[in-house]
């Protein structure tokens, strides 16, 4: 899926360079034939900055919003090129700094919304399109487009590199987990019927004999899937479910049902 995305974001500018404009744009905004798609975070930014609503812009965010409403932040795990890069840097980090046992816990959701709130307030006060300037999927795709169309890349590439370096040496996967406004907007519209990961303690084998909590170890965002409190951080990559099934256990499942929050 993610390899497909990488090929796609390279193919689009290439096709446009040779004169085919049926598909065009970046992950800021993409056109496929007559279908226009805009990143909901940017639509939110435009509405906040201009304090007006432009109908075609609203229509363009319907598809990604529907996706997020019922499937959660799957854009992040299935399509985002930054997630793809970060998974590589994570492998690199583990190579230079091997961690024998990862003990993941779930941070409280407030942090996520506070950071997103700060970004929005900053945007309104300064009038600077902050989300555009820090949107990793947009920056990466547009830099690839600039590189292919005009053989130049901007200093935006330094910001991308800086974040990746910080993720390796300081705070692993902090961007996707806490800071990304694109993911936060998608989390904002998620309904309680959205696709989610459900843990049932009854069928959990505890996995003591094999390795301590393989589902916990494998989470790319260092969350603990054995809890209902993985949202809004979790981006539904389902690594934990795959691992759980691999050890022959079915304690982690996907569901569309709302979760009961009083469960541990």
């Amino acid at each position: 899926m993610q390899v497909g995305t990488v090929l796609f974001i390279i193919a689009v500018p290439l096709l446009n360079k040779i004169g085919y404009h049926g598909v065009n744009g970046t992950f800021y905004s993409l056109s496929i034939g007559e279908l226009n798609i805009v990143d909901p975070a940017l639509a939110l930014q435009t509405i906040l900055l201009t304090k007006s609503i432009y109908l075609p812009l609203i229509l363009a965010i319907v598809l990604p919003i529907l996706l997020a409403m019922f499937l959660g932040k799957v854009f992040c795990s299935w399509m985002c090129p930054y997630n793809f890069l970060a998974e590589f840097t994570e492998k690199f980090r583990k190579l230079i700094k091997p961690v024998e046992k990862q003990k993941n816990t779930n941070p409280s959701p407030q942090y996520y919304w506070i950071i997103f709130g700060i970004i929005l307030v900053l945007l309104m006060i300064t009038g600077i399109p902050v989300i555009t300037l820090i949107s990793m999927p947009g920056l990466i795709t547009s830099q690839i487009a600039d590189g292919i169309l005009y053989n130049v890349v901007g200093i935006e590439i330094l910001l991308i590199a800086l974040l990746l370096i910080l993720e390796v040496f300081v705070a692993p996967r902090f961007w996707c987990k806490y800071a990304c406004p694109v993911g936060a907007t998608l989390s904002l519209v998620k309904t309680k019927y959205a696709l989610k990961i459900k843990y049932s303690a009854k069928s959990c084998a505890e996995c003591k004999e094999i390795k301590e909590n393989p589902c916990n170890q494998v989470c790319p965002l260092q969350l603990n899937p054995k809890s209902v409190k993985i949202y809004p951080y979790c981006n539904n990559c389902f690594e934990c479910i795959t691992t759980c099934n691999d050890v022959g256990c079915r304690a982690l499942k996907i569901t569309f049902q709302p979760l009961k929050t009083n469960k541990p």
Binding site: G25, S29, T50
Partner: peptide, 8 residues
């Protein structure tokens, strides 16, 4: 403010 730098 309106331009989202999408390169279209």
């Amino acid at each position: 403010q309106k331009c989202i730098r999408c390169r279209k």
